[in-house]
Design a protein around this nucleic acid. Sequence first.
RNA 1: GUGGAUGUAGCUCAGUUGGUUAGAGCGCUAGUUUGUGGCACUAGAGGCCGUGGGUUCGAGUCCCAUCUUCCACCCCA
Length: 416
Amino acid sequence: MIQKPKGTKDILPDEVYVWQYIEEKIKYIMSIYGFKEMRTPVFENTELFLRGVGDTTDVVQKEMYTFKDKGGRSITLRPEGTAGIVRAFIEDGMASLPSPLKVYYNMAMYRYENVQKGRLREFHQLGAEVFGTGSYLADFEIIEMANRIIHSLEIPNVELEINSIGCKTCRAKYQEALKQFIGSKIEEYCDTCKSRFEKNTMRILDCKEEKCKENNIGAPSIIDYLCDECKEHFNNVKYMLESNGISYRVNPRIVRGLDYYNKTVFEFVSKDEGYTIIGGGRYDYLIKELGGQDTSAIGFAIGMERLIELFKKYNVNKVNDLKPEVYIAQVDDKCYNFVTKLKMDLRQLGIYVESDISQRSLKAQFKYANKIGAKYVITIGEDEISKEMIQIKEMETGNVDEIKLDKNIIKSYLEK
RNA sequence: GUGGAUGUAGCUCAGUUGGUUAGAGCGCUAGUUUGUGGCACUAGAGGCCGUGGGUUCGAGUCCCAUCUUCCACCCCA
């Protein structure tokens, strides 16, 4: 038996309808917030992610599916969505569209990492991006939309955590201060912290080692180093959230693992599962970094598998797969032609109808109709055809009515 | 990349100190007479016991390797 590759998942019919329900719901929200869907290639030139996501990040350093194609080009399966969207924004001249521009995507992502709860090698992100505005109003709009998605899907125990990681200048100042604070006692830290000291100092604050945690007490907070502009921006975002009844918690440890973020970063974290279901932030430098005009932007991405796992935990019973309106049972093979014609006619009228396609006994047909959840069963034999009258049985109650054998009469009976 | 657990029918699992043709429940298919489902009963299909080595007269059971799945670290959605 050939198995599917590690970290991949089949989505079977009995789960796909949950996906469809959630995707429809989110699509609807996107549409009333003015976001348009777009799609980009599954693979991109590796260079895009090196420059976009950042070549010192874990995602780029050890998690990318990178290979040479037959023409010798270095190709990478996208590990996240924003870089490709930004590439298209620049390459396809989307900067000339009315600004601000709002787009969203729903695409598979690929990351070579070890599998565990809420983490796959192929997974799906539904993300939204706003291009062309650096205003805190855009930050609010995107966070509020994410919040609405969570609430419209009735997923409890989700907390919004926000932070500001400042702009280039205040972040540099902060890193300097942090390096001074930690540097004086770096020998007391664990090995991973030591290795991070130079290239990613801020991550040391995230270490879970007891000794390191102790050493981190009293460390400078990014919040205190924000420049006036960044501070005001962050205060405005918080004010907007407060005045619109969206509760949040400032978590100074949110840093985000992708290099392109600045100013506002946020996560919607499930307290049940302990993982982030929506993560996002502002990325005002990325478009220019990738060769476009200087353009502010902000966005988020939803981890669909995580969202769906949580949704199923609380709400599966609220979503139902489509069941046949009616099953047409046939008494014997003399009726196949007639039944097939009737089935086609009813489908033409938009009715979900099934009939026997494996030439089984009447009893077996009833059993099948019951198992697939047909609401009604019509039985057709030679008598019914000659008398033009049929029996229609409601499966749940067992009630039987007699009605005229006519597609329009059947249709209105089913709609009653 | 590191550490821990796991792997027997489609699913959930039994399988006794290694010993004949590998089991159950659910699910699937057919039947329990003549044109009607759910319940019950009967029968059937379906397993290279994750894979490859090794020990042994003999391995689902023991040993090694490897892969998968799950969990944690790391990181992320």
